[in-house]
């Protein structure tokens, strides 16, 4: 395996992971906040739906996505009308990663919002802040550790996504082949050295992500009594 190949696969993996994580972040934060703070009808149904991709076999998630997004799927028409062919592109890989990462991030957000004493928000409101500004100046900063932790979880989960990705994105060298998929296909082909090189890259990315997050968490740890 050439160095260029290794770099390409690694950068594709990072791109998939980043796109997946960043795209689900706003929705996961919002949903996590709603689940933590609001009582609404169907709340537990929503909670179950959110958790579903976490407990289903990833391959099943992949199949569901494929049926949903494929040419003959209910959403396939929408995509083809828009001129986008999602399936078997790296966007599909990102989508698969997003779907399996979403529950992790939402859960982490929900938990960290639930832990915040609502009196901080009440004080902010009485000091004249509207709901949105209170959220961005008080709630979110106080929840940042949990949100950051959830983001890390979702990101690393995206990096290692395999089951769902193989079905919706396939293993197309140079187009949808991420590190996890690359390792699998190289082992299948008997290219042990290549597989090990990709393993090393995965290891390096994961370790870096953990160290960066850990450092940030420690530095910005909220002094909570």
């Amino acid at each position: 395996m050439s160095a260029g190949e290794l770099v390409a696969i690694t950068s594709l993996t990072l791109r998939v992971g980043l796109v997946a994580t960043v795209s689900i972040l706003p929705a996961a934060v919002a949903l996590g906040y709603l689940l933590a703070r609001r009582e609404f009808p169907g709340r537990s149904v929503v909670q179950a739906m959110v958790a579903l991709p976490m407990v289903l076999p990833p391959v099943a998630v992949g199949l569901a996505l494929l049926l949903l997004l494929g040419r003959r799927g209910p959403l396939g028409n929408v995509w083809s009308l828009l001129g986008v062919d999602l399936v078997f592109t790296w966007w599909a890989a990102a989508l698969a990663a997003a779907v399996v990462g979403f529950p992790l991030l939402t859960r982490a957000c929900e938990q960290s919002f639930a832990e915040i004493d609502t009196r901080f928000e009440e004080v902010a409101v009485t000091l004249g802040l509207g709901r949105m500004r209170t959220f961005f100046r008080v709630t979110l900063p106080l929840a940042r550790r949990g949100v950051l932790y959830g983001t890390l979880l979702a990101f690393t989960r995206a990096l290692g996504e395999f089951g769902a990705t193989t079905l919706v994105a396939g293993i197309i060298p140079g187009r949808t082949e991420t590190l996890a998929l690359g390792i699998y296909s190289r082992v299948q082909l008997g290219d042990d050295a290549g597989a090990l090189a990709l393993c090393g890259a995965s290891f390096a990315i994961a370790l870096t992500a953990l160290l960066v997050a850990e450092g940030r968490l420690r530095r910005k740890r909220a002094p909570v009594e």
Binding site: D117, R119, F120, E122, V123, A124, V125, T126, G128, L129, G130, V138, P141, L142, R144, A222, P223, V224, E225
Partner: peptide, 19 residues
């Protein structure tokens, strides 16, 4: 609404913003 009442509230526990 609470944000427009213009009241200065000192809660029982100071509830200073830790961040």
């Amino acid at each position: 609404p609470p944000a427009q009442r213009g009241l200065g509230w000192v809660p029982q526990d100071p509830t200073l913003f830790p961040h």
